[in-house]
């Protein structure tokens, strides 16, 4: 067999496989309920990941799990109290956004900001409470041992990592997006940093409007 016809045959075979594959996708799409197309910026749709089971401890010593978030919108942010730049900047913007969102029909009084520390080694309940209170007293602040934290971050596609800085100091690299969790416990949007209150409000309004109608 000459090299040319051989590669031609390979090409044809590939073509047939691709066509079959595309046909399969088309068929399965027809069988599924036609998904509603979304033009909402940053919306994770049509398959927003469902929140998996996790159990952290909040700054009041209570269990903080998915059930605490059911029936309310949650804006979740990972950070740590030894983080002087991104964390206070984002939490200040979140708290300012929340002040406005309290009058939003879909956020209302039930909506919550959740601050999850990825630094359980240094962030005990007292440190977390003091830190969160500075921004807004109703922020849920929580953490857990690393393994348990990983269950939550994995479900949200978030990451964190301890990075030594010399002299026994360390910092934490961490996903710094704002995670929008719907009242039926799906991750429906991630707003990437840097953040401003206006962007947070805008994203919430657009995303929650779509989810309320189609979710």
């Amino acid at each position: 067999m000459r090299p040319l016809s051989r590669s031609l045959r390979l090409l044809m075979t590939t073509g047939v496989i691709l066509a079959a594959f595309a046909g399969g996708i088309w068929l399965s799409a027809r069988h599924a309920e036609a998904p509603v197309a979304s033009s909402v910026d940053g919306l994770l749709w049509p398959d927003p990941p469902a929140l998996q089971a996790f159990a952290l401890t909040d700054a009041e010593g209570r269990r903080f799990d998915a059930e605490r978030l059911r029936g309310r919108w949650t804006l979740l942010f990972f950070g740590f109290t030894h983080c002087p730049d991104v964390c206070p900047t984002t939490l200040a913007e979140l708290a300012a956004a929340q002040t406005t969102l309290r009058t939003h029909p879909r956020y209302g009084e039930r909506g919550r900001i959740a601050f999850v520390s990825v630094d359980p080694e240094r962030d005990d309940a007292a440190a977390l409470r003091a830190y969160a209170d500075y921004f807004a007293p109703d922020i849920i602040a929580a953490t857990a041992p690393e393994d348990e934290l990983r269950r939550l971050t994995r479900a949200l596609g978030a990451l964190f990592m301890k990075v030594p800085q010399g002299g026994g100091e360390y910092t934490m690299d961490h996903s710094a997006g704002i995670f929008f969790i719907s009242p039926d416990l799906h991750l429906v949007s991630v707003l990437t940093p840097p953040h401003s209150r206006d962007q947070i409000i805008e994203r919430f309004d657009a995303v929650s409007a779509f989810i309320e109608e189609h979710g």
């Binding site: 109290t81 030894h82 983080c83 002087p84 409470r129 830190y131």
Partner: peptide, 12 residues
Amino acid sequence: IRQPPPGSPHAA
């Protein structure tokens, strides 16, 4: 300087 929240020993 952003005033660090209580509980935070670092400021930016």
